[in-house]
Design a binder for these strands. Structure first.
Lengths: 110, 110
DNA sequence: CACGTTAGTAAGTCATGGCTTACGGTAAGC
DNA sequence: GCTTACCGTAAGCCATGACTTACTAACGTG
């Protein structure tokens, strides 16, 4: 139960729509900064700043290739957020089931 | 592959730390608005507004109980975000594996 | 039936953070 | 070595959105 820390950073990072867009493009294909910026309605420095946040959250990793920096998905950070959500999803499922059962019992009881 | 829509709303909603805090408290135990506000450093209307966003994203559901509104987790919205993340996590894993293999082959080749 | 409790909405304030331009710095190519 | 391409950081601007107070509404209780 310590995905909480990393999961929070990840969720905070994925809260911005532009960052989600960048994230999804990287998911399709690892890309360099300028390459990403060319397909987006924001400037290249803006993309750089977003990548910095995504990297700090552990969602993407960077690899130098000449003067280019190739960004790709980082399974670790993504996995942390996934686990956090999965845990809450399971909680929600059982809670919902219990709730539905109780409703049913109440109706049957009267 | 249409969790994208709901997942985006969910991620946008969970981007705010106060909303995540509210979300986690509801996960522990379904609660009314005032009850939540009492344990948080923000006013009751602020909590109301956050719950509105969470509900619109399909992450929580509301049930009237007298003048009180009980909020509980909604598995549907949470599941959508979970699936979105799970999908990208799987992508990241295989991509990372491929990348590692290629690095290894390159080293062996020389 | 009035009062107290609970909660959503409106309006307005203010800070967070996303964006831009400008700059500096590194690696490849001629 | 000089130029070109690629990228991160700094500084500053500005809009989004989170928060507050005030108001209105609905339900239960004495």
């Amino acid at each position: 139960m310590n995905y909480a820390n990393k999961a929070w950073d990840g969720l905070a990072a994925l809260g911005d729509p532009t960052r989600r867009e960048i994230f999804e493009r990287i998911a399709i294909r690892p890309s360099a900064v300028g390459e990403l910026a060319r397909g987006l309605p924001v400037s290249r420095p803006a993309v750089s700043q977003h990548l910095k946040v995504l990297k700090a959250a552990g969602l993407v990793s960077e690899q130098a290739q000449g003067t280019r920096r190739i960004y790709r998905l980082d399974p670790r950070g993504i996995g942390a957020v996934r686990d956090w959500l999965d845990s809450h999803w399971a909680t929600a499922m059982t809670a919902f089931q219990d709730y539905a059962d109780r409703q049913h019992d109440q109706e049957a009881g009267t």
